[in-house]
Structures are given as structure tokens and as C-alpha cells.
Design a protein around this nucleic acid. Structure first.
Lengths: 159, 159
DNA sequence: GTTTGCGTTCGAGCGCGCTCGAAGCCATAG
DNA sequence: CTATGGCTTCGAGCGCGCTCGAACGCAAAC
């Protein structure tokens, strides 16, 4: 099951031009994720990342995962929630370095909340800028497509 | 001069919520770039990439550049236009591999136009999807920011 | 005439984020 | 009883896109 990852499902849930309200996001955030504990394969499937990557994240200090009697990883709900957050941040371009710092702050306690908020605000701005860049690139690409082979404008050269 | 790269200047030219019409893009495309020929330093400055990267692109077969009597690179208008295109594609996430293929098609002549168009269409879709992903991530980040430290919803945990 | 500065070629190295292979443990299926 | 399959650890390797250093050439400035 779960041939699509969280992001894909989320994009399908909200139509392409949905308002993306706080409520809509809220509904995504805790949808589907219920289990008390999960295996590495289940989490990998849920997040559409490899078990290798999950182990790598753990090695990198991003999440702690308990073991069962056989030494196998047991992901509890908190670990899964954290990994959902982490993969979302990764997908939106936050570097591992920053995530490690962020998680260190989380583990350091409540007094780091302001700094964490700062990181999120900065990341928000980064995403916004990236969206603007991509929007511009999209327009340029569409312009090129529209004028390709025609005789409109200076972009007609062989590119 | 030119402390800002093309993208930054473009983003400033068009307001954040400009319509991004074909005309607006057109005006960006050939703005500023006039010189008959440019040095590597000038092109690097124009595109906000390093001279190292420009040489790398040339080595990669993305562009041919003539030399002057001293063996120094002389970028003619066509090379510069191509590099503008290439950097725009790189910035919007097209892999080097694909650009090499695209350029090979360009150099192969007019009969490759359909395939080139296919590549552009596919890239357009890639950008669109990426924008949707980022928009969702942005909303999730804003949601997290908005609810941070508050007692609203399930995301209040220490993340 | 030497210093400064900008260019050249070539090949190696790096940062990032995985990705993989080897060797081994355990449990269930046939 | 022996496969098969999924998990474990550990460390190495990889693909991408640069990025850099070394050794050198040439020219205009001092």
C-alpha cells in the first residue's frame, strides 16, 4: 500500500488551486498517521524514502529510535511525527546541517523556542524566494515554448 | 558593477505579484545584454556564476567559446544568450545531463525541434510540480510558525 | 625589470545527501 | 532442516555540480 508519498497525497487532496488555509494544512498534518509504533519498512513506505535513508537520519542524530527484542527498530508515534516534519523540511530544501541544528535546539528544551522560530521564519522566506524564482523560470520556459519556431522576438535562435 | 544576478534583477523588476505576461518576460530576456563580445569575467559577473563554472560548462560541451590572440575566451552575443538560457535552466533545476542532451539537439539542427520542445514541456511540468510542492511546504511551515508555542492542534509537540 | 592582475590548462578534491555491499542474526514457510 | 526474507551494523562509494590549486603566459603599471 501507499504507492504515493505524503507530498503526492497532499497535493492530490488539495486541488491545484486550493486556498491552502491553516485548516487545510491541519487536516493534512495528522491525517493517516495513527499507529502506536511502526517498523522501518512501514515508515519508509509512509514517507517514500528508503530504509537506508531512515538509518542515515538516525545516524545523523535527527531522531532516536528504540529497538525491539531482536534489535529491530521500533518507530513510535513521536519519532514518526518528527520524521514527517524532517522529510517535509528536506523536501522544501532545508539542508541536513540546519535540520541537525534545529533538532539539537528541540532536544535542548523550551528556552530554544525563539531560535527555532527564527529558523522557521528564515526557512519560510527561503521557500518564498525559491517559489518566486521558479515562477519566473516557469514564465521564461513558457515564453520559450510559446515562441519556439515562430518568428517572434529574439529568442528564436537555435536554443 | 552588477552586484545582483539576472534572477535577482528580474525579480526586482517584476513586482512580487506581477502578472508575468509574455511581454514582461520578453522585456527581461533581452534587457541589458547588448555587447558584441564579453570577457569571462564580464559574463561571470552578468550571470552571477564563477569563471570556474563558465569554464566547466564549456568543458561539459554546453557552449563553444572563441579565443583571442592571447588565448583568452571571447564570449560573443550568441554564447552569452545561450549561457543566459543555460543558467536559467540550471537555476530552475534542470540537470546538467539534460542540458547536455538539449544542447546536443540544438547543435544537431532544426529537425530536432520537436524533441527540444518535448524537453521544455517536460521541464515546465517539473517546475510546476516543484512550485506546488513548495507552496505546500510553505503553508506547512507557516502553519507551524503560527501554532508554535500556542496550544492549537497536534503540532504543538517539541518540534 | 619586477610586480600585479587577469587569463590559461589540467586534474584533483569537496560538500551534500544519500546509496550500497558485506557479513551476520532471527523467524517463519515449505 | 534449510531456505527465504527482512532486519542489523559498519564503512565505503557514488552522482552531482561545482570548486580549487598548481604552474604558467602575457600585459600594463610602477
Amino acid at each position: 500500500m501507499a504507492t504515493d508519498d505524503l507530498m503526492t497525497r497532499a497535493l492530490e487532496t488539495l486541488g491545484d488551486d486550493a486556498p491552502l488555509t491553516v485548516e487545510a494544512i491541519h487536516s493534512l498534518t495528522d491525517a493517516a498517521v495513527v499507529p502506536e509504533s511502526m517498523t522501518i519498512a512501514e515508515v519508509a513506505d509512509l514517507l517514500d524514502i528508503s530504509a537506508h535513508t531512515l538509518r542515515y537520519y538516525e545516524r545523523a542524530g535527527l531522531v532516536e529510535v528504540a529497538r525491539d527484542d531482536y534489535g529491530h527498530r521500533v518507530y513510535d508515534a513521536e519519532a514518526v511525527r518528527r520524521l514527517v516534519f524532517l522529510t517535509r523540511m528536506r523536501l522544501s530544501g532545508m539542508p541536513m546541517r540546519d535540520l541537525q541544528h534545529y533538532i539539537a535546539l528541540v532536544d535542548a528544551g523550551q528556552e530554544t523556542v525563539p531560535e527555532r522560530l527564527d529558523m522557521l521564519l528564515e526557512h519560510r522566506d527561503t521557500i518564498r524566494r525559491r517559489i518566486r524564482e521558479l515562477t519566473l523560470s516557469l514564465a521564461a520556459t513558457e515564453y520559450k515554448i510559446a515562441t519556439y519556431g515562430g518568428s517572434t522576438g529574439p529568442d528564436v535562435q537555435d536554443l
